[in-house]
Simulated assay, not measured.
Amino acid sequence: MQLPLQPRLKGYRGADPKKRRKAAEHNEMARRVVDHVNKLIANNPEPSQQYLWYEVARDLGLTVEDVESAVMYGGHHGVTVGITEESRRSLAAYKK
């Protein structure tokens, strides 16, 4: 898995303003979720980390389904990441 995590974005280029707005809202939420998880990863010194969707959902006031649909990688319940020195460098922008 490549770090930083990437959002799972929805594309809609049609003329329906309701569908366009819904896709834009999802994309904004997805970016917020991955930014949050990337910050958690960057600021955790452990070489192996696990983040459960329900915890992320609680942190951000979202549903578990929203969080699960927002992250490109991960399983049904969350994501486990192994951190290398290279991934630490790629996450530097998220470090506090």
Rank of each mutant, 00 (worst) to 15 (best):
L62S: 05
M29F: 09
Y73D: 10
H76F: 11
A70Y: 06
D66G: 09
A15W: 03
A24T: 04
V81R: 10
T80D: 06
S87W: 11
M72W: 12
R8D: 11
M1F: 10
A15E: 13
M72N: 04
A92E: 14
S87D: 12
V37K: 01
R13K: 13
S87Y: 15
I83Y: 02
P47M: 07
R88E: 09
V64R: 12
R32M: 13
H36I: 05
A42T: 06
K10Q: 08
H36A: 09
P45W: 00
K95P: 05
A30Y: 08
L52V: 12
K19D: 04
K18W: 07
R31V: 08
K19R: 15
V37P: 04
S48M: 11
S69T: 02
G82M: 10
H76S: 12
G11P: 02
V81F: 01
G75T: 04
E55D: 14
Q2S: 14
N38K: 02
A42I: 01
Y73N: 09
M1S: 12
W53T: 05
A24L: 10
D16L: 03
D35S: 12
V56M: 01
E28F: 11
K18M: 05
L3I: 05
K19N: 07
E28M: 13
M72S: 11
E65W: 12
G61S: 03
P4Y: 09
D16G: 02
W53M: 01
K39H: 13
L60S: 06
Y94G: 00
K10G: 00
G82S: 13
S90D: 14
R20D: 05
H76V: 14
V67C: 00
V56Y: 06
S87V: 03
E68C: 05
K22H: 09
A42Q: 06
Q6V: 13
L5Y: 03
S90H: 15
A93G: 06
V56G: 00
R31Q: 15
T63G: 08
K95F: 09
P45K: 04
P7A: 07
E28I: 12
P47F: 07
P4R: 03
E85L: 08
H76K: 15
Q6P: 04
